[in-house]
Design a protein around this nucleic acid. Structure first.
Lengths: 190, 190
DNA sequence: CTTTAAATATGACGGCCATCATGTATGTTC
DNA sequence: GAACATACATGATGGCCGTCATATTTAAAG
């Protein structure tokens, strides 16, 4: 049967949302089309009415995941940098990859999937620009070098956070895992 | 036919080596048993004479990859920290994941594969201990806090390097990719 | 109101992949 | 030297997965 435009749009959104979650939880290769469609409350056959291929879905879901976490970052109160660090390097974030950073969940897989590299690059560029502008960086220098320094700091902070989260998730030992989160949090807050 | 113990051991080693390479290049899910065996010069059926399952191979290949890169780190000359940064955050390392750091290539997948988490943890623990001891850290404090501070610094450095390499690989734009490597290299060398 | 187009469910197809079965030849062991 | 054990190749099997075909139903278009 044919459904109303509103209904269809809602289902499209559900597919995207569930895909963004499942891909982050299990990886692009680990989450199947049928599983995603079932999570969205549909059957597998309907998929190709919404996306031309799984690859295209991966690309769209990646952007969707970034937008979700971007919105959270924009909604932070208080010192933006500290708020980011506290949230990103938390046990809660470590334990819920499906709702968290797409870089930490899918980075290496994106590197191997040519189609998703473009949206990934766009989102990372935005993140770096945003953090570079909005975060306050301790080491003020001359006005000329200020901007470049902020950018370098933002890149370093993002890299550190991503690496720490990946390590904290992969490691088996809860003590070590929390030590990693705390160490990088402390190092970056200085 | 039955082969000599020496021959068999060599083939076993070849399987491990090719698996360590292919898994880093394509991920655990992306590299198949048949492809690995072919790369090792054998057919797929012989696999189960060497490993009980693909999962067991993944675990063993992960350790093998760590040992390969550990050996390179131990062989570095000059300032160990600087040598590590120069090598780890190089374009050459970025472009050859199959010969590079297992954390950056497989970290998120390890987090989802319970079997490989134990060897991963062991290797990361060793890396942190080694870097904590052998690298020279600029900010000398009181002797009491010295050890903990080295450890925190080592964890931060490793996290930053891993995150930067993953970002540099996933990003589409060569300029941005090299900027990420250079930024984190400069930040950590200070 | 009629016609058209589209979103969905069901089901099928083909390919890939991990694993296992079997036969065989040959080191290894006693 | 005879019996045994084993590493290998070939081939089969069963399952999963992405994609497509078809029928159905109904919103949308005219």
């Amino acid at each position: 049967m044919r459904y109303s435009a509103k209904e269809t749009a809602e289902k499209h959104e559900r597919i995207l949302t569930e895909a963004a979650r499942l891909f982050r939880e299990r990886g692009f290769a680990g989450a199947g089309v049928a599983e995603i469609m079932q999570a969205a409350g549909l059957t597998h056959g309907a998929f190709y009415a919404h996306f031309p291929s799984k690859e295209a879905l991966a690309s769209a879901a990646l952007t969707h995941a970034f937008e979700q976490t971007n919105a959270r970052r924009q909604a932070d109160t208080g010192d933006p940098k500290q708020a980011f660090l506290d949230r990103y390097l938390s046990v809660a974030h470590r334990d819920r990859p499906g709702a968290g950073c797409a870089i930490a969940a899918l980075g290496p897989e994106v590197a191997r999937d040519e189609t998703s590299r473009a949206p990934f690059t766009e989102q990372v560029t935005q993140m770096i620009d945003d953090m570079s502008e909005r975060f306050t960086w301790g080491d003020a220098r001359d006005a000329a070098g200020q901007k470049d320094r902020s950018r370098q700091n933002a890149i370093h902070l993002l890299s550190s956070a991503v690496g720490a989260l990946i390590l904290a998730r992969a490691v088996n030992d809860p003590e070590l895992s929390e030590e990693i989160l705390a160490s990088v949090r402390d190092s970056l807050a200085e």
